[in-house]
Structures are given as structure tokens and as C-alpha cells.
Simulated assay, not measured.
Amino acid sequence: METKMLDAHIPLPLAERLDALAFDLALPRDVIVTEAIAAWLDREERRRIVALRTIAAANTIVVVEQDRVIDWADSL
């Protein structure tokens, strides 16, 4: 797989946590960062899909005449 080099400035405490986790897991930092970015992107894409489905559902509201609602309520 081709890769692309990205530079990011992250807060020092976060970098220290990343270094500690990479050491504990014996994994390169880039593996952890790649997995974290992939998980974040997946979550955001799912949120977007849910939001679009919600908007689509809101646009398909069915209007029922008041008389029909009253007739239905009376039939209960």
C-alpha cells in the first residue's frame, strides 16, 4: 500500500501518552496513529450516514387529515 507522510503538531502530554503506549505494546507510533485515524474516520462516516438518514426521514412526514385521526381515535 502506498503511504503519504503527514506532519502534525500534537500537545506534549498526548505525545508522551503515545510514546508510552507504543513502548508498552512494542508497536511503532505510526501503527497506533494509523489505527486511531482509521477508527475516527469510520466513526465520523457512520455519524454522517445516520444524520443524512435522519434528515431524509424527516422529509418524508405523512400528513393525515384531522377527521381521519378523530375517526381512528373514536374507534379505539
Rank of each mutant, 00 (worst) to 15 (best):
L27F: 00
D19M: 04
Q66I: 06
R53V: 02
T3K: 10
V31I: 05
V62H: 04
A20W: 05
A58V: 03
N59L: 10
A58R: 14
R68L: 13
P13Y: 00
I49H: 08
W40A: 09
D19P: 00
D24I: 01
V31K: 12
R48A: 11
P13D: 00
V62P: 06
A57T: 01
A8Q: 04
D24W: 02
A15P: 08
V69G: 12
T3V: 04
M5N: 10
R53K: 15
E35G: 04
E44Q: 01
D24Q: 10
V33C: 03
E45V: 08
L18C: 11
D24T: 05
L52G: 07
E65I: 02
T60L: 13
T3P: 05
M5I: 03
R53Y: 09
E45L: 14
D67L: 07
L41Q: 11
L14S: 12
V69E: 15
I55H: 12
V50L: 15
I70V: 09
L21P: 03
A26V: 04
T60Q: 12
A22F: 01
E44D: 10
E65G: 07
E44C: 04
I70K: 10
T34G: 13
R47E: 14
A8F: 06
R29K: 13
M1N: 14
H9I: 05
V31S: 15
A26W: 03
A38D: 11
L41N: 09
D74I: 03
I55N: 15
L21C: 05
A15D: 14
K4Q: 08
A26K: 06
A58P: 00
L27K: 10
I32K: 00
I32A: 01
I10G: 02
A39D: 12
R68W: 04
E35F: 03
I70C: 08
E35Y: 01
M1K: 05
P28D: 12
L52Q: 14
T60E: 15
D24M: 07
R43S: 13
V50D: 15
I61D: 14
P11V: 02
P11I: 01
A56N: 15
L25V: 02
V69P: 12
R68T: 09
T60R: 13
D19I: 01
V33H: 04
H9T: 08
R17P: 00
Q66G: 07
R17D: 06
L21T: 09
